[in-house]
Design a binder for these strands. Structure first.
Length: 465
DNA sequence: AATCGGGGCAACCGCATACAG
DNA sequence: ACTGTATGCGGTTGCCCCGAT
């Protein structure tokens, strides 16, 4: 089968891509390795669209992809998931990476959490390349200022570093217990708000920690929800959120919500009001209040995030997208696709901001990260998401729509007419983006529908954070 | 034009961790 | 308490591209 791909070469899904396996494979299943084909990507994207992330080992069983679960997960995380930035790092990003490495060491995942749209793999590759380059040039790894922190920390962990290769030995192992204090010092330069005016932020005060941030710290699998005690008032520091907009920032006018439950706590009017204020959803990198950076995942939520909503949160995608203003990407091609994707992302950010709201968590000056972590831990084990699945359905639907919008360009990066897959929604539209020139893309839909996928098989799929 | 080396990147591997049974 | 499974993370490797020679 050949899938039209706009102006690009058609995507051919062969038996190698899917059930090269077939019956034979069941006996001797040989999982494919090496580079992914476009057809494999398409299968995986559609699989995730239908079933959400997680249960990666079942992808092979249920989609016919001859890839191991780890490979699928990696491919999705590094290349296929929505909201990924492609291309080289901006100077700002590079600087942030250097600074983060000075404080965190080789904690690529943590660093990636501070750089929305960037993957740990990207950062790791960038850093390793940088190390090689600078070693060859005889230059210091860290610029002045940052170097001080790094060297002090390296000194502290010298013995550990000595046993490692030249590249990895330059890292600075990080733990919350013995972290370098300077980076959390509001007066320190690393995250000085004045030096980072182009990257700002939604800010929260320590007394009003948004509960969706709980999960950010729990970087391993969490199937339990967090506590719901949360005052919604003053969620967003208006002064900070509105004063630091820059040309890089994404100002989002969040939609009014009829009812909305943040991990168990229903938004009251005040909070809705706050959420309706423009929020700088830029990178979420820098605490404009000058506090410490919190390590947090900034990816958009998967459809399995144990996200609660009330039963009457029956919100259409149109509702999500309405009233959203996104002046973004001054240097990119602002075509319809980008706009739609951006709007979908914004909508998901507003509804699923448990993971994508890019705000740095606020703190009183001098408040330690340790305490915050304890706070998170203490409230992370009380509420189970089991039994709340029905409450999540509407949001999962939205997420599905979002994934539709965002996944398609990875397969068909051309000009689109957009149709929203409405398997789960009242509207009836085809799930495939059709180009002006190539309406044959419907074949993709046929292909996907031929895959041995079912939605109901995944009702019990464990949530991922 | 051919070769070589470096850069960039994708993907795999091994290990650690969390959870379920 | 133990074991198996799923997932995440960091390290490493290998391939491809491109510029220099």
């Amino acid at each position: 089968m050949i899938l039209s791909n706009g102006d690009q070469e058609g995507i051919t899904i062969t038996n190698d891509d899917r059930l090269e396996c077939g019956n034979k494979a069941k006996a001797t299943l040989t999982l494919k390795k090496g580079p992914w084909t476009a057809a494999e990507d398409a299968i995986l994207v559609e699989y995730v669209r239908r079933n959400g992330e997680g249960n990666w080992n079942c992808v092979q069983k249920n989609s016919g992809l001859c890839r191991c679960g780890k490979s699928c997960r990696l491919r999705w995380a590094n290349h296929l998931r929505p909201n990924l930035k492609k291309g080289s790092f901006s100077p700002d990003e590079e600087r942030i990476i250097v600074e983060l490495h000075a404080s965190l060491g080789n904690k690529w995942a943590c660093m990636a959490a501070q750089l929305p749209g960037r993957t740990d793999n990207e950062i790791k590759n960038y850093w390793n390349t940088r190390v090689k380059k600078r070693l060859r040039q005889g230059l210091p790894l860290y610029p002045q200022g940052v170097e001080g922190q790094a060297s002090a920390y390296n000194l502290q962990h010298d013995s550990q570093a000595q046993n490692q290769n030249p590249i990895s030995s330059i890292h600075t192992p990080f733990s919350f217990a013995n972290r370098p204090t300077s980076i959390y010092d509001p007066s320190a330069s690393l995250f000085d708000q004045n030096s980072l005016t182009s990257t700002t932020t939604t800010s929260f005060t320590s007394s009003n920690r948004p509960p969706f941030l709980h999960r950010q710290y729990n970087h391993k699998r969490r199937y339990h929800d967090t506590g719901a005690e949360f005052s919604a008032t003053n969620l967003v520091n208006e002064q900070q959120s509105s004063s630091a907009l820059s040309h890089h920032s994404t100002s989002i006018q969040l939609p009014q919500l009829p009812y909305f439950e943040f991990l168990g706590s229903t938004l009251d009017q005040t909070m809705q009001q706050d959420l309706s204020n423009p929020i700088d959803m830029n990178n979420g990198l820098v605490p404009s209040w000058g506090g410490f950076p919190i390590l947090m995942k900034l990816e958009l939520p998967s459809s399995q995030i144990p996200f609660d909503s009330t039963d009457n949160t029956n919100i259409s995608v149109n509702d999500c997208i309405n009233n959203i203003e996104i002046p973004v990407n001054d240097d990119s091609n602002n075509n319809l696709l980008d706009d739609l994707l951006g709007e979908a992302q914004a909508a998901m950010s507003s509804y699923g901001s448990n993971s994508s709201c890019s705000g740095m968590l606020g703190s009183q000056k001098g408040e330690g990260l340790d305490q915050f972590c304890e706070y998170l831990d203490s409230s992370s084990s009380s509420h189970s998401t089991t039994g709340k699945k029905s409450n999540r359905e509407s949001l999962e639907e939205i997420n599905t729509i979002y994934q539709d919008l965002s996944n398609i360009p990875s397969i068909y990066p051309t000009h689109f007419q957009w149709f929203i897959d409405c398997d789960d929604l009242p509207q009836e539209q085809p799930s495939v983006a059709v180009t002006d020139d190539n309406p044959i893309l419907v074949e993709m839909q046929q292909l996907i529908s031929s895959l041995p996928l079912t939605t109901t098989n995944w009702d019990n799929m464990p949530g991922i954070y």
